[in-house]
Amino acid sequence: MNRICQSLRHPRYQILATTAPQSLLTRFLAADAATGAAVDKATMDKLVRTNKVVVFMKGNPQAPRCGFSNAVVQIMRMHGVQYDAHDVLQNESLRQGVKDYTDWPTIPQVFINGEFVGGCDILLQMHQSGDLIEELKKAGIISELLKAEEAKQQDDKAK
């Protein structure tokens, strides 16, 4: 357990989130923010596939503006996941667009491989049960928790 704590404190794991490609963001921010309309399905289809894991949240990973969004950020950090984060507080049309797209009433929302996985509650329960590790594995992402456990087993064998 201590080994995991140390590995997660490593600077490499502290900021794992990135913003989506600027061209795509600029396009819908300019168009939809001007009209006030929700981001359309075609744009959402692209947005949820900008990375293997995409999170729509309040605030950004460095400064979440909601406890539930913060919980998602921390779970992702524990697993060492690289992901794209979109701040819905910056853009009302994106906020409404993602809710319409998933037919899900609350933020945060998490996508893995373009598929909607759920919000904070579901992600937390998946984390607790170990299902999140499996889901990430399906997307070709090896969780840091799994890596740390395997490394520990190697060490134990060596001893």
């Binding site: 995991i4 704590c5 997660l8």
Partner: peptide, 22 residues
């Protein structure tokens, strides 16, 4: 793994200081 990941929101902060607010 299940032992490692079976963490409730109450004791998630024991794993690493970066998540103490949870």
């Amino acid at each position: 793994l299940r032992r490692l990941t079976g963490v409730s929101i109450r004791n998630l902060n024991q794993l690493t200081p970066t998540i103490s607010s949870l």
